[in-house]
Nucleic acid binder design. Structure first.
Lengths: 257, 257
DNA sequence: GCAGTTAGTTTACATCATTCACCAATGTGA
DNA sequence: TCACATTGGTGAATGATGTAAACTAACTGC
């Protein structure tokens, strides 16, 4: 949040210009109001007029701050990405503190926090990870602040994964057993991150993300209700399988084994 | 499609009533028009006025056929569910014909068809499997034709799975190793299907669905673009792992191994 | 032929995003 | 200090939306 608000501010000693005193504070206020409406009344209620009304303003005033509704929503999404990234980072920090830096604890804590946050923020999750709105894609064609914040989110997991790999390497699929086309893509992705680890490890990382996403999004979207009311045990099994995949021991809690 | 249109029709010999000649034909036409607009211009363009315009009518006329916009969209979704169920069923049939009924071919064909259909029908996929619209949930509270068609879709996979289990049983997690709470839910789900198979097999079924959904929806929504342009190889690896899980051999094609 | 139903229409209202013209304060340079 | 530009708004207008109500033309069965 802060980094966005003070993005325009100069050095600490300077007297803040009018732009920084007024405008910077208000963009955040707008985004927070939008967020509040999103949470309270759902994505359909997220209209410029509603936001403006809640702020005691008129809708056209918002155009001083954002180019369009889609632009505004895009910045809200970006904020949410940095929020969840921060949340997960904090959870990792707490796990590290209470476990003496144990890798398993940190990874499990990150995944648990991802699920907890997602279930506690269903409308936000839908915005970040649900069906992409075509208008939004078109609106944020150029500056794409979303992609940057999404990367920050992804790197929260990736740096943890890299940490794991460097300190407790685990067996991964050898390059020769990875499909040629996929190999090239994995290499490109790895290079874009500037990381040094075998393609098989990059593969495992994406593999884990696919499974984590699938499990959580099915639960958040309620697309598992046809069979399950509570997907928590299923999530735990997923976690223990992912842990096994990276050579870590994790036994799901068994409340009524 | 047909079963929906002729739902009101009497026996074949009877003279069709006016209701059946006109109204029944038109509900389908409305839904098809809506579908066309959805595909051509995206979900945001799916307005009652647009549909009516395309049909040479006025928007309020549509209220003769559907209670609201959400109601209409709900029925469109239901239609799409039965369509994809039919598509997958057909793919299974073709695979059975060309392979002499081999289980692996049938299952792989079903999964491939699910992915192919999803990639070829992104807007529809978003409607069926994306973030649920809260208004829609509220609108279809009672009659819920969606749930019925979604069940038809699920049972396409489930009957195939049941077929596999009955003819080629595979090792599954014993009941004692399944979390108590999850066990109860699995039992309830199994009973609702009227099927006879161990809870571990039901577990495996859901497990496979979670992984299939996660892989496909990430690809369809483009949420894998941060790393991959083409997720096909990843899908193949997923498939081979799922096959192994149910005791079937499947080696992903290796175009450039 | 008449009553009732069906499938539409027109009209109306509230809400939406967006654009434009305008205005009041504020800050700035001369 | 005065003139002027910039900033952050307002209000009205446009054209789109979902939906409700009243109305109408055609068709049906008796």
């Amino acid at each position: 949040m802060a980094q966005l608000a003070s993005g325009h501010a100069g050095q600490p000693g300077e007297a803040p210009s009018r732009r920084d005193r007024v405008r910077a504070a208000t963009t955040d206020e707008i985004k927070l109001t939008a967020r509040r409406i999103l949470v309270a009344d759902g994505p359909d209620a997220l209209s410029l007029r509603a936001i403006a009304r809640e702020m005691g303003m008129t809708a056209p005033a918002l155009y001083r701050y954002f180019g369009s509704r889609e632009d505004l929503i895009g910045h809200v999404i970006a904020d949410i990405f940095t929020e969840i990234a921060g949340d997960i980072q904090a959870a990792i920090g707490r796990a590290a503190a209470t476990s003496g830096g144990d890798m398993t604890h940190k990874l499990v804590a990150a995944c648990h926090e991802f699920r907890r946050w997602s279930l506690d923020h269903r409308p936000e999750f839908g915005l970040l990870f649900g069906s992409p709105l075509p208008d939004l894609e078109a609106a944020l064609d150029g500056d794409d602040v979303i992609a940057a914040c999404a990367m920050k989110f992804a790197s929260t997991f990736f740096t943890l994964f890299l940490d794991l790999w460097q300190h407790h390497p685990f067996p991964v699929r050898p390059d020769s057993e990875i499909d040629q086309g996929l190999r090239d893509q994995l290499a490109r992705y790895r290079d874009s991150l500037g990381a040094e680890l075998p393609l098989g490890a990059v593969f495992t990382f994406l593999w884990c993300w696919v499974r984590l996403y699938g499990m959580v999004s099915l639960e958040v979207f309620g697309h598992l209700h046809f069979a399950l009311d509570d997907a928590a045990p299923m999530f735990e099994y997923t976690l223990s399988e992912l842990a096994a995949m990276v050579g870590l021991p994790y036994l799901p809690p068994a409340p009524g084994a």
